[in-house]
Design a protein around this nucleic acid. Sequence first.
RNA 1: GGGCCUGUAGCUCAGCUGGUUAGAGCGCACGCCUGAUAAGCGUGAGGUCGCGUGUUCAAGUCACGCCAGGCCCA
Length: 1052
Amino acid sequence: MSSFRPVSLEASLAEEEERVLAHWAKTDTFARSVTQREENVENHYVFYDGPPFATGLPHYGHLVASTLKDVVPRYWAMKKKRVERRFGWDTHGLPIEMEMEKELGLSGPTSIREYGVDKFNEACRANVLRYTEQWRRTITRMGRWVDFDDDYKTMDLSFMESVWWVFQQLWDKKRVYKGVRVMPFSWRLSTALSNFEANSDYRDVDDPAITVRLKLDDEDAYLLIWTTTPWTLPANLGVAVGSDMAYVKARRKEDGAVYYVAEALAGKVLGDDHEVLGQLTGQDLVGKRYAPLFPYYADKKATGAFVVMASGHVSTESGTGLVHMAPAFGEDDFAACQKIGIDPVDPVDEEGRFTEPVVDYKGQNIKEADKPIIRRLKDDGALIRHDTYRHSYPFCWRSGTPLIYKTVPVWFVKVEDLRDRMAAINEGIHWVPEAVGQKRFGNWLSEARDWAISRNRFWGTPIPVWQCASCDHAVCIGSAADLAQRSGADVTDLHPHKIDHLTFACDKCQAEMRRIPEVFDCWFESGSMPYAQLHYPFENKAKFEGGFPAQFIAEGLDQTRGWFYTLLVLSASLFDKAPFENVVVNGLVLAEDGQKMSKSKKNYPDPHKVLDEYGADALRAYLINSPVVRAEPLRFSEAGVREVVRSVLIPLKNAWSFFVQYANVDGWSPDQVAQAPAAADRPELDRWILSMLQSLVREVNEQMDGYYLYKVIPPLLGFIDHLTNWYIRRSRRRFWRQAEDEAGREDKSSAYATLYEVLVTFAELMAPVLPFLTESMYQNLVSEPAGKTDDSVHLRDYPAPLEDRIDAALEQNMAVTRTVVGLGRALRQTHDLRTRQPLRHVMVVTHDDAVRAAVEAHAELICEELNVREVQVRHDDADLAEVSLKPNYKTLGKRMGKRMKACAADVAGLDRAAFDTLVGGGSIEVQGEALTLEDVIVTRTPKGDVVIESEGELTVALDTRLDDDLRQEGLMREVVSKLQRVRKDIGLDITDRVSLALVTDDDAMRSAVQAFEARVAEEVLATSIAFGAGGGDAVNVDVDGRVLQVYMEKLA
RNA sequence: GGGCCUGUAGCUCAGCUGGUUAGAGCGCACGCCUGAUAAGCGUGAGGUCGCGUGUUCAAGUCACGCCAGGCCCA
């Protein structure tokens, strides 16, 4: 009776995975993996899931993140931690608003207001979650365990209320202020756009380009400025120069006036015939005052406006090298003016029309005002030149009108005074890779600017500030209850259209207080996630306080300025703490051609197709072993996933299948582990693989503890090679040979117990990375034989290394042995000596006692592997090889310094006698330094026609001479090999016995078989061997060009 | 324009604090083995280490500059 369900090698990995998914679903494994762990605050391992926008479908970037967000929590869950995992959704903000605008045929805030903010917001609410089911399917198929039922959404009342609380904390700490910011602005839509939107539609356009002069106050000379936006001139408050740039004071021929202009541009601006009166730098101009072009803001002169300032953004690429500054209409202008205390003036309304005090153009569209403004400048004599200039200019991607840059009122959170503190807090965070935290994030922190948190949009958490229409007094509301109490209304939803009508009397003047119109930028919401997902502090106080900061988060590199940052700003502001302890940053997934993945280009395979074809384990292992886990870009390659299947999954499955096949033949069951010898008493090969296993366990634990996920797969690959290509291959006979005596039984029992333990431990060890295959293995090897139907590898404790099983010397000796065998194989290969042909002996030469001992101890093994009759170990290879010596730069470099070159020459000149001295433990003086054996590198070249191969201090030589005896055995092996193929070809099972009859007219072949008849019979499971025709059909096989007729019949 | 990352074989990537003849896998060519078999193993060809300058006895590795790609910011 078989104890293990046979492993089907035909079933695809993906099909197996579907079965595992069904098992997990049926037995609620994920939930139990959480709840089986102790429920107390110390034992919690807290993971924060950064919320994705739900407006699109998951792509590879999400799959990478999902893999990281699954592997790490699974690991810690097996390490006995209670790891709750909630999925999160980012539900507010522009992505969904824009999608709904499109679907509803709206365009911009004005049209949304006309349509009705309430209807619009409800449309957003109704549609933002429409892809969540598909997300759930894909993420689940990926093997990620995360709770979609108890998810959090940024539009939940509880979430939004906590966001209010967070804001109120900042408000009370006086960390919030209202300011202005220069933003891309669409006057057609009456709204500010994000920088991203502004970048999405650049067009080449012709604009007027005018050169205008400004009269200096203290001398009879002018500054020359240049602009393509004449309409901004009424708001001019300054002129910027590059402080190190070269300028000239020059007289223009045409009008005889004196101008200041950049030296490099003087010819272009003033004509080649200008007369240079003096040279100076920008710095010399700084502080000069000039007369305003227009009267509207002339009073600002008293506050320091109309002055020359230095700014880094001035160039000589175009214009005059003196830049007109309208701080309301340019970010650089704004920043430079802010530096010297000049506040912007903005005479343009939301529709792009001039307002007070620009009375001459009031009500006129700014672009249409260009012409009259230019005319007026010309009339005033200020216009020096008027050209047309073709340049690339941003357009509103929705309305197709040119964008302008314009100040908009914005609410800020103070960050600049927190830089040092945030940097200090960041020191305590473990970043993988380290450089992202130290450099990229660290640099960003040190230059952090105050954070704009408001948006003039609709679908979001409203900023909870109510302001008095009469006295401007403002209050911040921190909870739904607070609002209900003040307004007397029932508050059950905090979205703007549900609360904006709520008003109450001003504490100061009793006038009506109304909410300000802005909503939070969704980054503020996601930054509030640690508090808001738990509805802290309204609920879950103890849970939050015990679980903050989180142990782990993982997101993409693009979150450096995103989520990583907003989390830190808020937690530093509120709690003076880091929000998370460990963070793994992943890079971007590119298409195979190195380009961005693009749906329209179809330059990447559909994730579902990859999952269906290769399975999630393969994809996970591929991703985790790729540069993305080190925050570097990955060129996604389907072939790479296939390679994981080939190099990891199939060998593993084969090893598992091998075990099950023989265990079933022998009726071996897991309870027989107890009857096997103790691990320390098992044969060396068993002790070796167990040692290798525990070394792997130790390594994987170390890397996983350090969050170095990308260091897990390489040792895994090495282990699989050792397991399949050495342990199992070397052990095969132990499994199928009949145990005839007590020693035989013990050996077999050891082999089964060992391989079983290796497979089970391996399954546990790799469960976080390969959750499916390891589950199948575990179910098959452990759960099913024990009759457990709701068991799972993921409910087990993670294997800790059993240090006493690790035998470094044994591992080293086996490595030496494998090297010897490898060298011997290489020799056979290069000299065309197939392995089936036995050879007299192999010679191993080394002067290292440990190596010699290792080889001697494994002589029998080496004989079998190389098919030689004897291993000879020697310490002198003088008759086999010439040696040439080179210095060991590593050990000698420091000692020799500049003498290194001479030393190299001297060492190269050393002879065999000198080498022997070194091998004997002596030393040779070179360049005044005593060299020992470790100071030289030895290269061997074969002497004469010997067949040798060497690696390091090992030299292996094969005796290639054949005699009749060897030839006969070789021939026999060849016959056996062919007979085995016949067994295979006629479809025999590995245990089937046969009767055998052979016909050949080749005497050598017949005598070879006769000489080894018992062995041939044993090898091919023949109960009898006869010469002459037998029953049934003959199969003709070719043995080295000679024909052999085989009559093989299966015995009942 | 700024910060950071990347550039090593046809492809995907390793190369620790500078030190021998720069490695692995895939692909290609050739071969071996087979009681795990629609698997397994080996050998070989293939590289101006993006370019340049410098530091050093010694640079893929350190420094500086440049070029290309990427992410973020402006």
